[in-house]
């Protein structure tokens, strides 16, 4: 957890509303895939929490979906712009806790943090099975990136325009996997939690945040272990903690 200044070096549109942004600077605060940064935008009071897609010694990759004016301004920024980030926030995914055969399940922009996780698993010699879900073919991104890691990728779109028609959760039954790493919209997370095939897993949650480092308790969710802050105790929670 550290305040760092990072320079936007490269931006690439992936779909009509999702951008890949690369930043140069100190990435030492980031220790686990699934952590996030809280990025300050000029003229906006609250920072924007954005999950880390990937990182190396000096480069940070974020995938940003334009959800409002703040994220639109971020995606319109010119390379060379310096941003103030609180970096290395949250717990992230813990690979050591994976007890079974893993599957990474991502929905929409929730796919972003799973890439950094998949790359580390591939580096360890075990490219994971991945299930990616999007609304339409036009919304699909990072298919090639996951395939290039050697992952076995299942793809679904809600309208059936690419891959299997329907929801990403329906793909899980096609695999022998029993442990999940998940990030996506709320209803998708609920559907994944209800799958009896998955006996364990880690789920990344999203919530509107004030500070992003545990002080304001604005993002609290109720768990089996009591109230937990999505920003500080999460964003990744164990399947058995979730109510």
């Amino acid at each position: 957890m550290k305040q760092v200044q990072m320079t936007l070096t490269e931006k690439t549109p992936l779909t009509a509303d999702v951008w890949q942004l690369r930043f140069a600077g100190d990435t030492s605060p980031i220790t686990h895939p699934g952590q996030f940064v809280n990025l300050e935008l000029p003229g906006r009071f609250l920072r924007r929490p954005i999950s880390v897609c990937d990182w190396d010694e000096e480069t940070l990759t974020l995938l940003v979906r334009v959800a409002g004016k703040g994220t639109a301004e971020l995606c319109q920024a010119q390379p060379g712009t310096v941003f103030d980030l609180l970096s290395g926030l949250g717990n992230g995914f813990d690979l050591d806790e994976c007890t079974g055969t893993p599957i990474l399940i991502g929905g929409g922009i929730g796919v972003a943090p799973l890439y950094g996780l998949a790359r580390r698993m591939a580096q360890n010699g075990k490219a994971p099975t991945v299930a990616l879900g999007f609304n339409t073919a036009a919304d699909v991104f990072y298919l090639k990136e996951f395939t290039d890691l050697g992952c076995h990728v299942f793809l679904s779109t809600v309208d059936g325009s690419l891959g299997a028609p329907g929801f990403v959760t329906e793909l899980v039954a096609k695999t022998e996997c029993d442990y999940c790493f998940v990030c996506g919209p709320g209803p998708m997370l609920r559907a994944v939690l209800a799958l009896p095939q998955l006996t364990g897993g880690q789920i990344s949650f999203e919530e509107r945040m004030g500070c992003g480092f545990g002080a304001c308790v604005g993002c609290t969710m109720e768990t089996k272990n009591g109230p937990r802050r999505v920003c500080k105790d999460g964003p990744v929670f164990r399947k058995e903690e979730i109510l």
């Binding site: 609250l46 919530e207 004030g210 308790v217 604005g218 993002c219 609290t220 109720e222």
Partner: peptide, 23 residues
């Protein structure tokens, strides 16, 4: 106290709203 349901944070011009509810 758990406080109020989420979302309980919103941005405003020059500030923010919170409805944490005394958690």
């Amino acid at each position: 106290r758990f406080g109020n349901p989420t979302p309980r944070i919103a941005e405003t011009p020059g500030g923010m709203l919170n409805a944490v509810g005394l958690q």
